[in-house]
Design a binder for these strands. Structure first.
Length: 693
DNA sequence: GTAAAGTGTGTTTTT
DNA sequence: CACACTTTAC
């Protein structure tokens, strides 16, 4: 460690010795094992500030995080540090921190490929498709090639993309992937090969890249002798957050960027690896020291987040994992409430309990935004959402079905994407089949016509539309021509959204129910669009970093400081923390998920997931266990079974919790009104069901 | 031949 | 409730 000037010394004095060692490490490869709540973000931002203070040009620093939000937060903190370091040029400080390359692997890939992709023969005007677009493409190729027709158990489109994606991200061939993860698909190997081949070809023809391609081409670019040199010349320091959730392709990219590890810093926690379904491998972080000999390993174990009673429980839970690397988190916050295991009769009572407890904390001065409800699967929060709506409590839900994935939003984006890239037949097919009277076949003919004309929408004027299409057809052509005219760009992207909306609104009302609500979504999208300078950047941002909740979109610009409760999947809660945390559905089958019981590896990952959920809590932790589980099945409407407590609260863990029922007996007869209301509803439901088939 | 309406089945997590 | 597949309508 080199000598530290006094004014910088002061800034780093607030770090603990391990954090400080990490932040001020020299340029050799560095692995920071950062347990939950150990000040990872602080350490990483100090490290970036340190590197800059050592004379590294910020534009030659690459900071890879798992979301753009995390990247922005990091840059903000670096900025603050640079100012505090007394950079004489105040403005210079923020300009410098802004020039840092920050973002996700995927968004960074897009940026780099637009700049340098041509050197490996990739056009710079590609458009990017998301997961469901990839599924649509896969599905239309499947029917085009007539694969899997009349064949039992041919994988569905979602599974097809999953298999394909896993092959790409693990860098494995099809057969081993099938054997390991999809053995029931082995009989279709040949069909799959043919299909995936066509999938690759088609994406090339259409000048589109999917999520996997972004990594794949970045990897290819970095492997190329010339391309690799270019990228290595671009970056002097590379820092990676959440390294436990990277995959083989991503670690390969890093290896190409920093072959001997010089300038490379990775941060993560093997106990929080929860993305193996996305081909992330915990081996990346575990084997890092062998991959880069001479690596300095720093372990952060002092937890600044949770109270000791909460840590005692979470430490015990992670201790029981099959494979793990020893570290023991400790906290100086000795005193505190024990975590509470709440017995609920069913998920309605669970919802009731959460709302009651949330309000109690609110009255005691804990704002809603310092409280969060976490769950394994998006639908686990349904009953709670109903209750929150009924009692007028504001909430934001993260994870699950995103705003951007709803059909009407996808429709609108497809018009814009087709205008941006007329070769994009996925979007073409989508917008054409929206027109009444046009289905798969006619749409395909029209797309062929478009291709033959050199992708000029004029070509469609020759088409004789069927009766149902007549009134829409000329308007549609005019819309597409307007959007693709050079003048359109000048008027701004939100004017384009407006034009699309004008054309599409009547179709929307016809196509879907709940029209007004959907129309409102599109109005919001128009608002959002006004913040973007070009159609390309709008499309790219929206596909690579979609707003994670519908409410975010509404509030983003106006920054309403309305207080709201956070509802989130555990996956989306990564890296965050709240004063009070409520975990729903701590029952076997939900946590761990029924779907992930095949192997010890899968169960271990579910355990880590539970661990991640619990370690989000600072002061209060409630784990809810609804005893009775209802079946959603239409046929067995009223059926239920009695669940088991999640296996992750073992006999050794249980004593670390305080166990109590959701409501005490005396509480139960107080809210009489509500009591009678629900009872009546139950009776009606039962009566109705007596006559339903 | 093609589009649209109808029927039966299975539900995680996300860049 | 969306998906794959089937039947009916144009």
């Amino acid at each position: 460690m080199s000598e530290i000037p006094q004014h910088i010394e002061d800034l780093f004095a607030q770090l603990n010795p391990q954090q400080r060692a990490a932040a001020c490490h020299d340029s050799g490869s560095l692995l920071i094992i950062a347990g939950a709540g150990t000040g990872k973000t602080t350490t990483l931002s100090h490290r970036v500030a340190w590197l800059i203070s050592q004379g590294i040009d910020p534009s030659r620093i690459l900071l890879l995080t798992f979301s753009r939000r995390a990247a922005n937060e990091m840059v903000r903190r670096v900025d603050a540090l640079l100012r505090a370091m007394g950079d004489s040029r105040e403005h210079a400080a923020s300009a410098r921190s802004r020039s840092i390359w920050g973002g996700t692997f995927h968004s960074t890939a897009a940026r780099l490929l637009r700049r340098y992709g041509q050197s490996i023969g990739l056009p710079d005007d590609f458009t990017i498709i998301d997961r469901s677009d990839a599924e649509d493409l896969m599905s239309s190729l499947r029917s085009e090639l007539e694969l899997g027709n009349n064949v039992a158990k041919f994988p569905r489109k979602g599974t097809l993309v999953e298999i394909y994606s896993r092959c790409v991200n693990t860098c494995l061939k099809l057969e081993p992937v099938l054997e390991r993860y999809y053995p029931w698909c082995l009989e279709h190997v040949e069909a799959l090969k043919q299909l995936f081949q066509a999938f690759v070809d088609r994406k090339e023809q259409q000048n589109i890249l999917d999520y996997d391609d972004l990594l794949l081409f970045w990897h290819a670019l970095s492997s190329d002798p010339a391309g690799g040199k270019l990228l290595r010349g671009q970056f002097e320091a590379v820092l990676v957050d959440e390294y436990q959730d990277t995959n083989v392709l991503q670690s390969g990219i890093l290896k190409n960027l920093c072959p001997d590890g010089a300038g490379l810093t990775v941060v993560g926690d093997d106990a929080q690896s929860i993305y193996s379904f996305r081909a992330a491998t915990v081996r990346n972080i575990l084997d890092f020291p062998e991959e880069y000999p001479g690596t300095t390993v720093v372990t952060l174990e002092e937890n600044y987040r949770s109270t000791q009673p909460i840590l005692a429980a979470t430490n015990q839970i992670i201790d029981e994992a099959h494979e793990r690397y020893e570290k023991k988190l400790w906290s100086s916050k000795i005193a505190g409430e024990p975590p509470i295991l709440v017995d609920c009769s069913d998920n309605n009572e669970q919802a009731d309990f959460v709302v009651t407890q949330v309000l109690e904390h609110l009255e005691a001065g804990i704002p809603l935004n310092q409280q969060a409800v976490l769950f394994r699967a998006s639908h686990h929060s349904l009953a709670l959402e109903v209750e929150l709506a009924r009692r007028n409590i504001a909430y934001h839900k993260y994870g699950g079905l995103k705003f951007i994935e709803t059909a009407h939003v996808k429709d609108l984006m497809a018009y814009l994407r087709l205008a941006e890239n007329p070769r994009d037949a996925v979007s073409g097919l989508r917008v054409l089949t929206l027109l009444p009277g046009i289905g798969q076949k006619k749409a395909q003919q029209l797309l062929n016509l478009l291709a033959e004309s050199g992708f000029r929408f004029d070509a469609w004027s020759e088409f004789k539309p069927p009766a149902a299409t007549v009134e829409h057809w000329p308007l549609f052509i005019r819309l597409m021509k307007n959007l693709s005219s050079p003048q359109s760009e000048k008027k701004g992207i939100s004017s384009e959204v407006h034009q699309v909306r004008t054309f599409y609104s009547p179709l929307l009302d016809q196509q879907y129910d709940n029209g007004p609500a959907r129309q409102r979504d599109l109005e919001q999208l128009e608002q959002v669009a006004s913040r973007f300078s070009s159609r390309m950047s709008f499309l790219e941002e929206i596909t690579l970093d979609p707003p994670s909740s519908t409410q975010d979109i509404a509030n983003d610009s106006s920054k309403t400081d309305d207080d709201f409760l956070v509802l989130s999947t555990i996956h989306s809660s990564k890296g965050l923390e709240w004063d009070a945390v409520y975990v729903l559905q701590a029952a076997d089958g939900s946590i761990p998920s029924e779907m992930s019981l095949e192997s010890n590896d899968e169960i271990d990952e579910e355990r880590r997931l539970f661990y991640v959920a619990l370690t989000r809590a600072k002061n209060w932790l409630y784990v809810c266990f609804p005893h009775r589980q209802y079946f959603q099945n239409r046929r067995w409407n009223q059926a239920h079974s009695y669940a088991q407590l999640t296996r992750f609260i073992s006999s050794k863990t249980l004593p670390l919790f305080q166990r109590r029922p959701a409501f005490n007996a005396e509480d139960l007869d107080t809210p009489e009104e509500a009591q009678i209301e629900t009872t009546a509803e139950d009776i009606r439901k039962n009566i109705r069901n007596m006559w339903s088939s």
